[in-house]
Amino acid sequence: MLVTGGAGFIGSHVVERALAGGWEVAALDNLSSGKRENLPLGVSLYEIDVRNPGAVSAAFQEFQPVVVSHQAAQASVSVSVREPVLDAEINIIGGINVLRASLEVGTQRIVFASTGGAIYGEVPVGAADETAAARPYSPYATSKLSFEYYLETFRQQFGLDYVSLRYANVYGPRQNPHGEAGVVAIFADRLLAGQPININAMKEVGDDGCVRDYVYAGDVAEANLAAAEGRTPRLLNIGTGKATTTRELAEQLASALGVQAELQAAPPRVGDLQRSVLDVQQAEGVLGQPLTLKEGLRRTAEWARSRR
């Protein structure tokens, strides 16, 4: 298995789980946000940007992947709003480079890190299942949905199999607190430094913030392994189905870290959905029950404390 973005937050968890599952694994990453130390010893790293078609092709020719777990992405909603061209260059053009290289070497399946947290748009009540209409609200969501269509086109035209995993908001060890994505990592970093946390409003300053479905990185890695092994449907939500406000998240994380939280009311962020929760009944049928937020935050807090 070749994991693009394999030295990054989610990608490195996929690498670890694939190794534990008996796969031969390599990573492809430009290290713009990933880190070489995230990779287990012995895992080959191709330090390549997916926007470079020649380099991507050469890496595929050398490793000859049977399955590709495509995690490499521009993953920030706010960056996509400011820089939609950059977002499309990485998430669409870079993805097509991966698909073309896969065809060159006879790769059997692509497992794609898509987004349920953005593609479905606002989920005002309940939870969005895989049949819900796509209502992308940001360039990031649009680029992810567009690439899902490319995957289906390549399947029909060239017979390249794929699975699209629509992630909820992923958190866990090794998440970068210095970017614009990854609220759990950002909050943990500030809480441990004794700094206040902003609760960006859902509608009006002072409310409990946006509602999200938070899924642990280990569960996401498990889903990638199941998809790689052909044990999932072609489209699958990966989350918990549980709704959590920003304020609830901050309070639970502070409790897990054993610190007091200073919470500050802040305005809504540009591009943010107000409410996003995924229906995960299909995933539970394949993978079982996801980790609870309480336990996931406990594990994440333990890692964050150890890093400091």
Results as ranks from 00 to 15, higher is better:
residue 2 L to R: 10
residue 6 G to T: 08
residue 11 G to S: 07
residue 11 G to M: 08
residue 11 G to A: 09
residue 12 S to P: 12
residue 14 V to E: 03
residue 18 A to R: 12
residue 18 A to Q: 14
residue 20 A to N: 06
residue 20 A to F: 00
residue 20 A to T: 09
residue 23 W to A: 15
residue 23 W to M: 10
residue 25 V to Y: 08
residue 27 A to S: 05
residue 29 D to I: 03
residue 32 S to G: 15
residue 37 E to K: 08
residue 39 L to I: 08
residue 39 L to N: 08
residue 41 L to T: 07
residue 42 G to L: 08
residue 42 G to M: 03
residue 45 L to F: 10
residue 45 L to C: 14
residue 46 Y to F: 15
residue 48 I to F: 06
residue 54 G to R: 14
residue 55 A to R: 04
residue 56 V to H: 02
residue 58 A to E: 15
residue 62 E to V: 07
residue 63 F to Y: 14
residue 64 Q to H: 12
residue 67 V to M: 03
residue 68 V to T: 05
residue 68 V to R: 06
residue 71 Q to P: 00
residue 77 V to Y: 08
residue 82 R to K: 12
residue 83 E to Y: 13
residue 84 P to S: 06
residue 91 N to T: 09
residue 98 V to W: 07
residue 99 L to C: 02
residue 101 A to L: 03
residue 105 V to C: 07
residue 107 T to L: 05
residue 110 I to M: 13
residue 112 F to H: 14
residue 115 T to I: 00
residue 115 T to Y: 00
residue 116 G to V: 03
residue 118 A to W: 04
residue 122 E to A: 05
residue 125 V to N: 09
residue 127 A to E: 09
residue 131 T to I: 02
residue 134 A to P: 13
residue 138 S to A: 13
residue 139 P to T: 09
residue 139 P to R: 04
residue 139 P to L: 11
residue 145 L to N: 10
residue 145 L to A: 14
residue 146 S to V: 13
residue 146 S to P: 00
residue 147 F to Y: 13
residue 153 T to N: 01
residue 164 S to W: 01
residue 167 Y to Q: 12
residue 170 V to K: 00
residue 171 Y to M: 04
residue 174 R to C: 07
residue 177 P to I: 03
residue 183 V to R: 00
residue 190 R to C: 00
residue 191 L to P: 02
residue 191 L to K: 03
residue 195 Q to F: 02
residue 200 N to P: 09
residue 207 D to M: 13
residue 210 C to W: 01
residue 212 R to P: 04
residue 212 R to W: 13
residue 216 Y to M: 04
residue 220 V to T: 12
residue 223 A to L: 12
residue 224 N to I: 01
residue 229 E to K: 12
residue 239 G to F: 10
residue 244 T to Q: 11
residue 253 L to S: 02
residue 253 L to Q: 02
residue 253 L to F: 02
residue 253 L to A: 02
residue 254 A to N: 11
residue 256 A to L: 11
residue 261 A to T: 13
residue 262 E to G: 03
residue 269 R to Q: 15
residue 270 V to G: 11
residue 270 V to T: 15
residue 271 G to A: 14
residue 272 D to S: 14
residue 276 S to K: 03
residue 276 S to F: 06
residue 278 L to F: 09
residue 288 G to E: 11
residue 292 T to I: 08
residue 293 L to F: 07
residue 302 E to V: 10
residue 305 R to C: 03
